[in-house]
């Protein structure tokens, strides 16, 4: 399964819907998408990972890079994920401490912390 990407703006926030597998082969595509959004002045991002089937450390690296880029503009990068198979790699790497992870896009859009 390849990577699918779609974006939609909700006011100041851009939701990036990601589907498929984020690995060493597909992660560059996600990286380019996040860089393009930041280049276009979109600094409040929600990455919806509910349709992601696989995520490895290369994908984590891209998300960490994206978080650093939006933070440089006082922005935020929130994740939407309820799948245990995906959450596990965030937990074992301690990255649950740096990414706000939400159960739904609506929850991420209304989060204020």
């Amino acid at each position: 399964m390849d990577l699918s990407l779609a974006t939609k703006d909700e006011g100041d926030i851009t939701v990036v819907e990601v589907g498929g597998e984020i690995d060493v082969y597909t992660a560059p595509k996600l990286r380019e998408q996040l860089i393009e959004l930041v280049s276009n002045g979109r600094y409040q991002l929600v990455v919806d990972m509910e349709s992601v089937d696989f995520l490895d450390s290369t994908g984590l690296g891209v998300l960490v890079g994206g978080l650093k880029r939006v933070r440089a503009h006082d922005g935020s990068l929130r994740l939407v994920c309820t799948q245990e198979r995906i959450l596990k790699i965030f937990r074992i790497t301690g990255l649950t401490k740096v990414f706000p992870i939400h159960a739904s896009v609506d929850e991420a859009l209304t989060a204020t912390d």
Binding site: T58, G61, K68, R71, T93, G94, L95, K97
Partner: peptide, 17 residues
């Protein structure tokens, strides 16, 4: 050995882990 907060430190360049 890694502090996750260091990974997103503004001092570090966006890039691979």
């Amino acid at each position: 050995s890694i502090d996750p907060m260091d990974l997103v430190s503004p001092d570090s360049e966006p890039g691979p882990l």
